[in-house]
């Protein structure tokens, strides 16, 4: 294939990766930024979203779009509920101690993974996309659903941004993120904010998973890569910066796609990972972050 179309295809693919990554990472960024804890189980919430999407679409017969829409609503709610319980039962009792929460969320990771293996099984299972439309470009065909994922993700990101910047809930969250003690002094129920943020973060991961699952199947070990990539995106973007998170997701997604045009894939991954690490070495606060407090 000629160079131009090849690059176009790689960019489209990078865009899809970036869209899903941005949503997942935003969830992690909220938890990371507001609660100051490292949630190692974030990838498992992603996986849980995909697995539930499979369960819901399998249970609902009729047009695939019906089941998919149901999954898009129900799966994140269920995942949010699981996160809420975990927050109430475990994290709050640890007083959000950063080290103890790492152990606790690793424990949570094991539990969720094992439950998925026991009740869902070890196989990769497909979910039918809500629609099958193949866009025919002059050089190659492309999945219309993939482009709709990008659009849906952009909509969700804008919605999240509006909630964070234009509503009272968002203001309360940002206040808690900025200074916990002062927020408490001003009568903000910090504990309830934390519970809400943790659930919301998990829900964002779950939504991202439901969107991607018709493209890449549900599997009980699918959580690890999104977790690692989300960590990278959050830090590169700068803690607590929504704009930074989106830009970093774009950089990571696109660079992964485009570098693979020029190099053998594994070498491409080595180069991309190294370059991103070097960005962080010379700009530790991330692209849009302020210096860490």
């Amino acid at each position: 294939m000629a160079f131009g179309p090849h690059l176009l295809l790689a960019s489209l693919e990078g865009l899809v990766t970036a869209a899903v990554l941005a949503l997942t990472a935003l969830g992690l960024s909220l938890v990371f930024g507001v609660m100051r804890i490292v949630n190692v189980a974030h990838g498992e919430f992603f996986m849980l979203g995909a697995v539930l999407a499979w369960a819901i679409t399998t249970a609902i017969t009729g047009h695939p779009a019906l089941g998919f829409l149901a999954a898009l609503v129900i799966a994140p709610l269920l995942v949010g509920a699981v996160a809420l319980v975990a927050e109430r039962v475990v994290l709050r009792r640890l007083n959000y101690n950063p080290e103890a929460t790492i152990v606790a969320t690793i424990g949570l990771l094991y539990i969720i993974q094992q439950l998925a293996l026991t009740f869902y099984g070890p196989e990769a299972r497909p979910v039918e996309p809500p629609f099958n439309y193949r866009i025919l470009l002059p050089w190659f065909g492309y999945s219309g659903y993939k482009l709709s994922v990008v659009a849906a993700s952009a909509l969700l990101l804008v919605a999240t941004w509006l909630v964070l910047t234009r509503t009272k809930i968002g203001m309360v969250m940002r206040a808690t993120q900025y200074d916990r003690e002062t927020a408490q002094a001003f009568g903000i129920p910090v504990e309830r904010v934390y519970a809400g943020v943790f659930a919301l973060g998990a829900m964002l991961a779950a939504v991202a998973a439901v969107l991607i699952v018709p493209i890449s199947q549900a599997h009980y070990l699918m959580g690890q890569d999104p977790l690692l990539l989300s960590f990278i995106v959050v830090i590169i973007g700068g803690l607590g910066s929504l704009r930074g998170t989106v830009v970093a997701a774009l950089i990571i997604g696109l660079s992964d796609g485009i570098i693979s045009v020029f190099f053998s894939p594994t070498l491409a991954k080595i180069i991309a990972t190294f370059l991103v690490a070097m960005v962080l070495v010379f700009r530790p606060q991330g692209l849009f972050g302020t210096t860490a407090r």
Partner: peptide, 19 residues
């Protein structure tokens, strides 16, 4: 065409298939 084991999407490698 060697594809890294961590890959979950493959479309970007397909143009490397000779015509």
């Amino acid at each position: 065409i060697a594809i890294p084991p961590t890959e979950s999407s493959f479309t970007k490698y397909l143009p490397q298939i000779p015509a």
